[in-house]
Protein backbone atom coordinates (compact mmCIF):
# COMPACT_ATOMS: atom_id res chain seq x y z
CA UNK A 1 0.00 0.00 0.00
CA UNK A 2 1.10 3.58 -0.74
CA UNK A 3 1.25 5.91 2.27
CA UNK A 4 1.74 9.66 2.36
CA UNK A 5 2.91 11.17 5.64
CA UNK A 6 2.33 14.77 6.75
CA UNK A 7 4.40 16.18 9.62
CA UNK A 8 3.07 19.40 11.16
CA UNK A 9 5.46 19.91 14.06
CA UNK A 10 9.18 20.47 14.49
CA UNK A 11 11.56 18.08 16.20
CA UNK A 12 11.83 17.88 20.02
CA UNK A 13 9.02 20.32 20.92
CA UNK A 14 6.27 17.79 20.19
CA UNK A 15 6.28 14.02 19.84
CA UNK A 16 4.70 14.34 16.39
CA UNK A 17 8.04 14.17 14.56
CA UNK A 18 9.01 11.05 16.51
CA UNK A 19 5.65 9.38 15.93
CA UNK A 20 5.82 10.17 12.21
CA UNK A 21 9.31 8.68 12.02
CA UNK A 22 8.32 5.51 13.90
CA UNK A 23 5.23 5.08 11.73
CA UNK A 24 7.19 5.62 8.51
CA UNK A 25 9.87 3.16 9.59
CA UNK A 26 7.29 0.53 10.59
CA UNK A 27 5.43 0.96 7.29
CA UNK A 28 8.65 0.48 5.31
CA UNK A 29 9.57 -2.57 7.40
CA UNK A 30 6.19 -4.07 6.54
CA UNK A 31 6.92 -3.62 2.85
CA UNK A 32 4.63 -0.66 2.22
CA UNK A 33 5.60 2.17 -0.05
CA UNK A 34 6.00 5.69 1.31
CA UNK A 35 4.95 7.94 -1.55
CA UNK A 36 6.20 11.05 0.21
CA UNK A 37 6.83 12.58 3.62
CA UNK A 38 5.65 16.19 3.56
CA UNK A 39 6.81 18.66 6.20
CA UNK A 40 4.47 21.56 6.89
CA UNK A 41 3.96 24.27 9.53
CA UNK A 42 6.80 24.00 12.09
CA UNK A 43 7.40 20.53 10.66
CA UNK A 44 9.82 22.20 8.25
CA UNK A 45 12.24 22.46 11.18
CA UNK A 46 12.84 18.72 10.85
CA UNK A 47 14.97 19.65 7.87
CA UNK A 48 17.63 21.91 9.38
CA UNK A 49 21.10 20.45 9.40
CA UNK A 50 22.14 22.98 12.06
CA UNK A 51 20.37 20.91 14.72
CA UNK A 52 22.82 19.85 17.43
CA UNK A 53 21.10 17.81 20.14
CA UNK A 54 23.03 16.52 23.18
CA UNK A 55 24.94 13.31 22.45
CA UNK A 56 22.73 11.11 24.61
CA UNK A 57 19.59 12.17 22.74
CA UNK A 58 18.29 11.05 19.36
CA UNK A 59 19.20 13.18 16.37
CA UNK A 60 15.81 13.56 14.73
CA UNK A 61 17.12 15.34 11.63
CA UNK A 62 19.89 12.80 10.95
CA UNK A 63 17.45 9.99 11.57
CA UNK A 64 15.22 11.27 8.75
CA UNK A 65 18.22 11.74 6.45
CA UNK A 66 19.39 8.18 7.10
CA UNK A 67 15.94 6.71 6.55
CA UNK A 68 15.67 8.66 3.31
CA UNK A 69 18.98 7.33 2.12
CA UNK A 70 18.20 3.73 3.02
CA UNK A 71 14.78 3.73 1.39
CA UNK A 72 15.07 6.41 -1.24
CA UNK A 73 12.36 8.40 0.56
CA UNK A 74 10.94 11.55 -1.00
CA UNK A 75 11.02 14.10 1.84
CA UNK A 76 9.53 17.44 0.86
CA UNK A 77 9.60 20.65 2.85
CA UNK A 78 6.92 23.23 2.04
CA UNK A 79 8.58 26.28 0.53
CA UNK A 80 6.19 28.88 1.96
CA UNK A 81 6.35 27.41 5.47
CA UNK A 82 10.13 27.04 5.14
CA UNK A 83 10.65 30.62 4.05
CA UNK A 84 8.75 31.88 7.09
CA UNK A 85 10.90 29.78 9.40
CA UNK A 86 14.31 30.15 7.78
CA UNK A 87 14.83 26.76 6.19
CA UNK A 88 16.65 27.28 2.88
CA UNK A 89 18.49 25.29 0.26
CA UNK A 90 21.08 26.78 -2.07
CA UNK A 91 18.56 27.84 -4.68
CA UNK A 92 16.24 29.49 -2.16
CA UNK A 93 19.19 31.21 -0.48
CA UNK A 94 20.30 32.71 -3.78
CA UNK A 95 16.79 33.75 -4.77
CA UNK A 96 16.17 35.48 -1.48
CA UNK A 97 19.60 37.03 -1.06
CA UNK A 98 20.63 34.92 1.95
CA UNK A 99 24.27 34.05 2.54
CA UNK A 100 23.71 30.55 3.89
CA UNK A 101 21.68 27.42 3.37
CA UNK A 102 20.75 24.90 6.05
CA UNK A 103 18.80 22.05 4.50
CA UNK A 104 19.79 18.57 5.66
CA UNK A 105 20.58 15.73 3.22
CA UNK A 106 17.58 13.92 1.79
CA UNK A 107 15.16 16.84 2.08
CA UNK A 108 14.03 18.99 -0.81
CA UNK A 109 12.08 22.24 -0.80
CA UNK A 110 9.02 22.43 -3.00
CA UNK A 111 5.47 23.74 -3.20
CA UNK A 112 2.25 22.79 -1.45
CA UNK A 113 1.19 21.09 -4.66
CA UNK A 114 3.42 18.24 -3.51
CA UNK A 115 1.16 17.69 -0.49
CA UNK A 116 -1.98 17.81 -2.62
CA UNK A 117 -0.38 15.43 -5.12
CA UNK A 118 0.52 13.08 -2.26
CA UNK A 119 -3.12 13.17 -1.15
CA UNK A 120 -4.19 12.25 -4.66
CA UNK A 121 -1.61 9.58 -5.41
CA UNK A 122 -1.29 7.79 -2.07
CA UNK A 123 -3.80 5.25 -0.79
CA UNK A 124 -3.65 6.79 2.70
CA UNK A 125 -2.59 10.11 4.15
CA UNK A 126 -1.48 9.94 7.77
CA UNK A 127 -1.06 13.27 9.57
CA UNK A 128 1.11 13.81 12.63
CA UNK A 129 0.93 17.07 14.52
CA UNK A 130 0.10 18.77 17.77
Amino acid sequence: MKFAIQVNEGPYQHQAADSAYQFTKAALEKGHEIFRVFFYHDGVNNATKLTTPPQDDRNIVNRWSELAEQHNLDMVVCVAAAQRRGIVDEGEAKRNGKDAENIAPGFRISGLGQLVEAGIQADRLVVFGD
Binding site: Y40, G111, L112, G113, L115, V116, E117, G119, I120
Partner: peptide, 8 residues
Protein backbone atom coordinates in the same frame (compact mmCIF):
# COMPACT_ATOMS: atom_id res chain seq x y z
CA UNK B 1 -3.36 24.25 1.20
CA UNK B 2 -7.06 24.63 0.42
CA UNK B 3 -6.29 27.12 -2.37
CA UNK B 4 -3.70 24.79 -3.88
CA UNK B 5 -6.04 21.77 -3.65
CA UNK B 6 -8.67 23.79 -5.49
CA UNK B 7 -6.13 24.62 -8.20
CA UNK B 8 -5.64 20.87 -8.62
Amino acid sequence: VVLIAAAF
